[in-house]
Design a protein around this nucleic acid. Structure first.
Length: 424
RNA sequence: GUGGGUGUAGCUCAGUUGGUUAGAGCGUCGGACUGUGGCUCCGAAGGUCGCGGGUUCGAGUCCCGUUACCCACCCCA
């Protein structure tokens, strides 16, 4: 029996799981304030959903998907990202009738078959949101604002992050530019790595991402999409930046920002953290996908969204020294002097819990001293001492763990009395 | 898929040029204080030294293989 979790997966033990819930809670409250509603889609889809949306030539589709055949002979894939499923669901349920819009968010695990490293897991968690049906540039700025506000709220200092933005053009200006880059790559084939030359055919823009010094050199003088945008895209991009300026959100333009999903049009953005992460330093990112729903066979509906990674965000939080808020495990500890009063102690703890007070007690007949140690460790503010002596007159002793003062209280009045002490 | 690093107690790690019974700190449990926590002191429990083979009188230590994890490349959250 192999008792290890599969490669690239991790059990989330209480400290991490608490952080997960904290991030989820923060996102839910924030997203609701911007009018987003939750959606849960399946963790797996027909393989086609991802191939057609993310793109055949992307790394995700060509080598990172968890794909298998189910017992009915269908090709099924564990979702590698969230947008494709959301868009599929939006079409299936006609969530965005012509002329209307929808704002939705999701969270949960995603799956990609890769070699794990710092900030990269085979099962990793994301929260994301999608704004469907709205082509206006103010929506781009609003979505970016939500993302930045999320990080601010959970406590990552702004100076630890960089917001990168770029425009990928649209169906009119990108194809000619793609051809231009493909030509450029072919013209310089002898000074580029073979990977980049191969990309000329499938995904030429990706050559901008290559870390090879020779390729960087060549690509640094390549024509930039920024200079080839059609007037409409140029105007849209300019407006997005104006709205960001109006919100006081600082950003850097990065003309080489080319994200690894084919469906993006116009605005793309990425947030990088400079502390706590290894080389996987993108903690969140997203972009606009105005053609995606149409390509899926749905109505022509523009869309835009982002996703942020739990694991990487937690690394950035730890680097910033952020304390994850938590509640004490027990407000009240019920200690018993000896086993003759075990039953009464059990009843008292139950009555406190019924009154809504988080209470803990020892089930293992440990010494009174170790029960106090336990009370201390759990962060209990009060300890109720149940002993034969007090019981003869129907009372118990309540000890304030901070002031060390003790009072005798009638057992019947205990829940009310304890609540009063905790409230004070 | 490629490369590098590391596997010794629940956790973090020592362990000399190979040498007898493998250690420390933290944590856990007990005691000092026979009905009272955080500090201190004392004690106890807890280990197939990742696994398999080889060299050797003798391997935690050296060699080979294997496996797991970590980090990096590629790409991304």
């Amino acid at each position: 029996m192999n008792v290890r979790a599969p490669k690239g997966t991790a059990d989330m033990l209480p400290p991490v799981a608490r952080a997960w819930e904290y991030m989820t809670r923060t996102a839910q409250e924030l997203f609701a304030r911007y009018g987003y509603e939750p959606v849960y889609t399946p963790l797996f889809e027909h393989t086609d959903v991802f191939v057609r949306s993310i793109g055949e030539a992307t790394d995700i589709v060509s080598k990172e998907m968890y794909t298998f055949e189910d017992r009915g002979g269908r090709s099924i894939t564990l979702r590698p990202e969230g947008t494709a499923s959301v868009v599929r669901a939006a079409i299936e349920h006609n969530m965005v009738p012509t002329g209307s819009s929808a704002k939705i968010y999701y969270s949960g695990p995603m799956f990609r078959y890769e070699r794990p490293q710092k900030g990269r897991m085979r099962q990793f968690w994301q929260i994301g949101l999608e704004a469907l049906g709205m082509p206006e540039p103010s929506v781009d700025a609003e979505v970016i604002a939500v993302l930045m506000e999320f990080y601010e709220r959970i406590g990552i200092p702004r100076e630890n992050m960089r917001l990168l933005v770029n425009s990928m053009g649209d169906a009119f200006c990108r194809p000619p530019y793609r051809d231009k880059i493909a030509d450029y790559i072919r013209d310089h084939a002898d000074s580029l790595c073979e990977e980049c030359v191969r990309r000329a055919a499938s995904n030429p823009l990706r050559a901008f991402d290559c870390k090879n010094p020779g390729c960087r050199e060549v690509m640094s003088t390549a024509p930039l999409l920024r200079d080839e945008l059609c007037p409409e895209c140029e105007e849209h991009y300019g407006a997005v930046k104006s709205y960001l300026d109006a919100l006081g959100i600082a950003y850097e333009e990065d003309p080489s920002l080319v994200r690894g999903l084919d469906y993006y049009t116009r605005t793309v953005f990425e947030v990088q953290a400079d502390a706590g992460l290894g080389s996987q330093n993108a903690i969140g990112g997203g972009g606009r996908y105005d053609r995606l729903m149409e390509e899926f066979g749905g109505p022509a509906t523009p869309g835009l969204g982002f996703a942020l990674g739990f694991e990487r965000t937690l690394l950035a939080l730890e680097a910033a020294g952020v304390e994850i808020p938590s509640h004490p495990i027990a407000e009240v500890y019920v200690a018993r002097v000896d086993s003759s009063v075990a039953l009464r102690a059990f009843e008292i703890a139950a009555s406190l819990r019924s009154a809504g007070i988080a209470s803990e007690l020892d089930h293992q007949a440990r010494s009174l001293k170790s029960q106090f140690k336990q009370a201390d460790r759990l962060g209990a503010r009060l300890t109720v001492i149940v002993g034969p002596e007090e019981l003869t007159v129907g009372e118990a002793t309540v000890r304030d763990m901070l002031t060390k003062s003790e009072t005798r209280v009638a057992i019947d009045a205990l829940p009310a009395h304890v609540m009063e002490m905790l409230g004070a």
